[in-house]
Simulated assay, not measured.
Amino acid sequence: MTRRLLTALVAGLFLVGFGIAATGTAAAHSAPTASVPDDGATIEAGPARASITFNEDLQPNFPSLTVVGPDGNLWSKGAPVVDGKTVSVEVGELGPVGQYTVAYRVTSADGHPVSGTRHFTLSKPGNGVAGPKPTAKNGSSEEDSSGGVPLWVFIVGAVVLFGGGLAFALFGGRSRKPKS
């Protein structure tokens, strides 16, 4: 009777862990839905602020949003600001003609870091003054990797360890006598 109860308990724990794992993998993280300028757009003059809007609210902690020009210099000014689903940064007047990269790294509502790039092309030269070359200190996130581990991985691991420990505690210490 005790063995059946324990087997049912361990099976239930594994099923709960599997259910949590399946739910965790199905949950989507933040994804960009729009940007200013639009991704892939060709513009004649830069916007006052570059922004990226996501499909869900963002956490305001430690956002990164940079605009890097074809000359390899920063064209964004100041710190990025999160407002609900949107992260933005001041840009000002741009400079050389060519492709600009908007690199972002934000934290989604579920705590998962999300990063990526968007691009636009400036078709007419501007008179803006470039900033320094991007570094990790001044906010370039093009080379960052996510590094975030989803929560469900830890939950499944805890369930498996608990189930294994419980099984060992109940059955591991018994010595079995051979049947004669």
Rank of each mutant, 00 (worst) to 15 (best):
A31H: 15
G126E: 13
F171A: 06
P150E: 02
L161M: 08
K137L: 00
F171S: 05
S30L: 05
T121K: 12
T107P: 14
K179Y: 01
L15T: 14
S145L: 15
T25Q: 09
A103D: 12
V36M: 07
F168H: 13
L5E: 10
R174P: 12
F154V: 09
D83Q: 10
V129L: 04
S35F: 05
G157E: 02
G19L: 12
A109D: 07
T117I: 08
T121G: 11
G92L: 02
G12D: 02
F168K: 15
H119N: 14
G111T: 13
V91T: 14
A41F: 03
S30I: 12
A41D: 03
P96Y: 05
E93W: 14
S145G: 15
T117W: 01
G164E: 07
I43F: 09
S108V: 10
Q59L: 12
V89F: 00
V129M: 05
T107H: 05
A50D: 05
F18K: 00
P70S: 11
N127Q: 14
D110C: 08
Y100E: 01
A158C: 06
L5Q: 13
S108I: 09
L94A: 09
A27I: 15
E143Y: 14
Y100T: 05
W75Y: 15
G128P: 12
P37M: 00
E90R: 13
P63L: 05
L170E: 11
P32Q: 04
I52S: 02
V129W: 02
A48C: 01
P178S: 14
G72K: 08
